[in-house]
Design a protein around this nucleic acid. Structure first.
Lengths: 342, 342
DNA sequence: TATCAAATCGAAAACGTTTTCGGTATTTCG
DNA sequence: CGAAATACCGAAAACGTTTTCGATTTGATA
């Protein structure tokens, strides 16, 4: 029992391959009688077009590539979810690759996807990405391309982001509004744009409230892990025992801080208030419940795909597409870890 | 600037397409001189074979399909991670689809993947899956196929699982060993094999300790969510205020229980002990830290792909492959939520 | 009846690769 | 020197589809 082909149907019906193909695609120049015969035989033989041949002929695969730093990550898995769902709705499949925060891998994976001739690429950069050449290659090959969250500002592609500066500023302002003034920041690595922007947002909030910036209150994560949260919490208490609040680059790190403070008996928020970023699921079930900044991760995925789809459609019709940047809304979620100071 | 092809290289070098192809694949019947010329020109033109044409010719795409119920899920995202990593190591890409626990979607997606002519399929069934026809279709088409975690026992394919019965029995035994005897079970839906097995394990543990089974202590999740954990916790306390322990089908549900108990001031484990399943990341950062059963999720992904690869290799060489079932080890992780009763 | 339009069909090229098989040209050896 | 072995190359088929363009038939109209 082999796969049915156009040729087979044509032979059984004593007509040409051309006519069979046209009948199945409802061309107007095939008689109703022939159409019916073809369609019913096709159904009987369980015919489905060989996608390899279709790909070759049409030069598209209805498949896109997605590269993210980490799959096991509340934010990213939500984005994946959004992209995969929206893609499927539009007849596209998604190949997922994980760069593991390694520039080298990321480059290889871009090459892999180009090689596979995916119809488009969506990417969120690894922390190491200070080299743009692979992204430029995507553009040079005119492959539809969208960046999200961790982007290269200078690469001229569509982008889906939040305003990290303002979001971070709001988070720190929230701490200040609730009576905390000596605030430490556990920031992300030096390269990624969003770590930089959140750091700038932190500084701006201080500035707007006439709180002098103290560089010794800033701690820099290398890997942005739970363990780093624990380690920096310890370090902060050693360096600044009078610290009042901590703003962490992401919930995972903030949870490390919480965990350490809980273990050694530091009261949150009475002694130190903590706010994270990204609104991971676990943040709402911790004790105390962690305040954070909500980031529309699922929507980010959906929007990214929609933008990519637009560009892919233009690409197919060979009409020009002008990359757009879409900024999604965030909002501070106040929970127990930042209750108002009495 | 177009894509370089074999034809182009052949013309520029004044040789045949055949020779170019052979030179690039290091066939022995091409002279060193020609090989060098071809290879260097290919590099110069940035040639890479058109994968659409290669697919069509070789009848394989070096791509596999993966269908899981949920992407945003600690266990599944870890499995994805394992599969994607192992696949990439072996030159395969992974298309990911999410069935959203819907049988209908799952069927559609299987059809989609068959249509795409992926080289193999890995699947973890949705809770609704009491219909096997789409899986039988995969087998009938001789597409290499591996099931993991939520499997259909009767489908003759390779499988990667844990022993849910024993794992659950151990979890409940752990509660009993620590002095808890009146134990409720929040089970999963009625269909999935692993929910059934874990329920059987629960019963066996009771039996082995001469604790009479009480059906009213068993609560059945529909969606296996955090919220259901909260709701059932409330219900359990209403039905059996003297309950001593709770074994939940998965950590997410157990965390719901914890969350509710924390909110209304029920002490864990002093008043009620709680144990979950799967060892989600958040379980170790909660207060109290949640006891659970560790399930080697990443390894499950890696093993699934390895099995699939074996079958794909056999398939290519047209040698027979006998499906295997691999059972991975689990272990109870004792944390604060099940501390020994005094 | 001659003419023209509409309806229906098919030949053939094209997509780019892989591989079989046979054909030269060159070398080796008796 | 002739025959056999070896080294090197290319023609062509095949994978299965899509689409252009021209051919044929049919029916309608003047």
């Amino acid at each position: 029992m082999k796969e049915a082909t156009l040729k087979e149907i044509a032979e059984k019906l004593g007509i040409s391959i051309t006519t069979v193909s046209k009948a199945l695609k409802d061309y107007p120049d095939v008689s109703l009688k022939t159409k019916d015969a073809v369609i019913s035989l096709a159904k009987k033989l369980n015919y489905s077009p060989n996608s390899f041949a279709v790909n070759l002929r049409t030069k598209e695969s209805k498949t896109i590539g997605l590269i993210i730093p980490e799959i096991v990550h509340h934010f990213f898995s939500n984005v994946i979810n959004g992209i995969v769902a929206e893609a499927e709705k539009n007849g596209y499949l998604v190949i997922i690759l994980q760069s593991n925060e390694s520039l080298e891998l990321e480059k290889k994976q871009v090459a892999l996807l180009i090689n596979k001739r995916v119809d488009g690429i969506i990417i969120s950069l690894s922390n190491e990405s200070n080299d743009d050449s692979h992204l430029k290659e995507i553009i040079a090959r005119k492959i539809p391309f969208v960046q999200f969250d961790k982007i290269a500002k200078l690469i001229h592609s569509s982008k889906v982001v939040i305003n990290d500066q303002i979001a971070a500023r709001n988070a720190v302002q929230h701490l200040i509004d609730n009576g905390y003034r000596k605030i430490a920041h556990i920031r992300g690595p030096l390269n990624p744009q969003n770590a930089i922007d959140r750091f700038i947002g932190y500084k701006k909030a201080l500035e707007m409230n006439n709180i002098p910036f103290d560089a010794s209150l800033v701690y820099t994560c290398e890997k942005v892990t739970f363990q780093e949260g624990i380690d920096f919490a310890k370090q902060i208490m050693a360096d600044h025992s009078d610290v009042e609040g901590i703003f962490a680059i992401t919930d995972l790190v903030a949870v490390g801080v919480l965990s350490y403070f809980n273990d050694i008996g530091i009261k949150i928020p009475e002694q130190v208030a903590v706010i994270g970023f990204s609104n991971w699921f676990m943040s709402q079930v911790l004790t105390p419940k962690l305040s954070t900044v909500d980031q529309p991760s699922h929507e980010m995925g959906v929007t990214s795909f929609k933008l990519l789809l637009e560009e892919m459609n233009c690409h197919k019709k060979e009409i020009h597409f002008t990359p757009r940047t879409i900024e999604l809304e965030t909002k501070v979620i106040a929970r127990e870890s930042t209750f108002k100071k009495k």
